[in-house]
């Protein structure tokens, strides 16, 4: 196993435990896991409810869970709220799409040429550590407080994981696989598209999964900190500062968390469907030596 592969394994396990993704567990033990997880949630809600109702913590700080959950349901059927969620999600989607196109393209170029890679490293190592939040003032100054500002910040902050994973993936392509393509008459471009790119896809997709959660964080942060003209973050800011409605803020926070969960779940489905061939996702027992 190469270092890059290890790195990718590690980065993929941070977002999802490996055992949850394998089909090695029986449905029975899976159900047990689900039940236990549900029990954990129920306990958390019950304690929060008790703490709030008994007055240990003032209801201003911690509204009763039952009330918050009611608000969640109410918000999910409130069109004006959903419009704000839609604004956040559209910035998320556009930013992520731009990031993927740009970073994968640059990553493939840098990954297939040693000279380009070493030449660009200094620039990348300088730009990468800049926290995206530190760019908010600059982005506001140049782009105002609309969607463009959010999208620019998302693209900046999400480009790194996709870019680096693409480069690693390109470096990890098996030379024998490339030689095979060449021996069957495939030229450089054709080998790149038919061998290097598919071979690097698991790496790239891991980068995209990281980018997808970072993009959501950055979208909401930008809305909060830059006082964006719309979006879920802006809505929460209003509910908090002007509305003084802790129940609504809590409910919106839970919805933001649910968004993250749903996004990750969808991406996992896509990965299993299209990248199920990669070693980490193969059903065990199928491959014999």
């Amino acid at each position: 196993m190469t270092v890059q592969e290890k790195e990718r394994r590690l980065s993929s396990t941070t977002s999802a435990p490996p055992f949850g993704r394998r089909r090695t567990r029986s449905t029975a033990s899976r159900r047990t896991t689900l039940l236990r997880g549900a029990a954990g949630f129920a306990a958390l809600f019950a304690i929060a409810e008790l703490v709030s109702r008994s007055g240990i913590v003032s209801e201003t700080f911690l509204p009763p869970t039952s009330l918050v959950l009611l608000r969640v349901v109410e918000l999910l059927v409130t069109p004006s709220f959903l419009v704000e969620v839609g604004a956040t999600l559209s910035a998320w989607a556009i930013g992520l799409a731009i990031c993927i196109v740009v970073s994968v393209t640059i990553g493939v170029l840098l990954g297939s040429s040693r000279a380009a890679y070493s030449g660009s490293r200094a620039v990348i190592e300088f730009l990468r550590p800049i926290p995206s939040v530190a760019l908010i003032p600059l982005a506001m100054l140049v782009l105002g407080n609309d969607a463009e500002m959010k999208i620019a910040l998302i693209v900046f902050s999400t480009s790194w994981p996709v870019l680096f994973n693409t480069i690693y993936g390109m470096h990890d392509v098996d030379p024998i696989a490339k030689l095979t393509a060449k021996s069957f008459g495939h030229g450089r471009l054709s080998t790149l598209l038919t061998v290097s790119l598919p071979s690097a896809m698991p790496f790239i997709f891991t980068g995209i999964r990281i980018a997808a959660s970072v993009a959501l964080i950055v979208a909401i942060s930008a809305e909060l900190l830059a006082g964006a003209s719309n979006g879920l973050g802006r809505w929460m800011l209003d509910a908090s500062a002007t509305g003084n409605r802790p129940d609504l803020v809590f409910a919106a926070t839970i919805i933001a968390g649910l968004l993250g969960l749903i996004i990750n779940f969808l991406l996992q489905l896509i990965e299993r469907r299209f990248l199920g061939w990669q070693t980490a996702l193969r059903p065990t027992g199928g491959a014999s030596k």
Binding site: I176, T180, M201
Partner: peptide
Amino acid sequence: FQDYSRSLFPW
């Protein structure tokens, strides 16, 4: 090739 597992494309 000798190394069939590397010469066949797993995807």
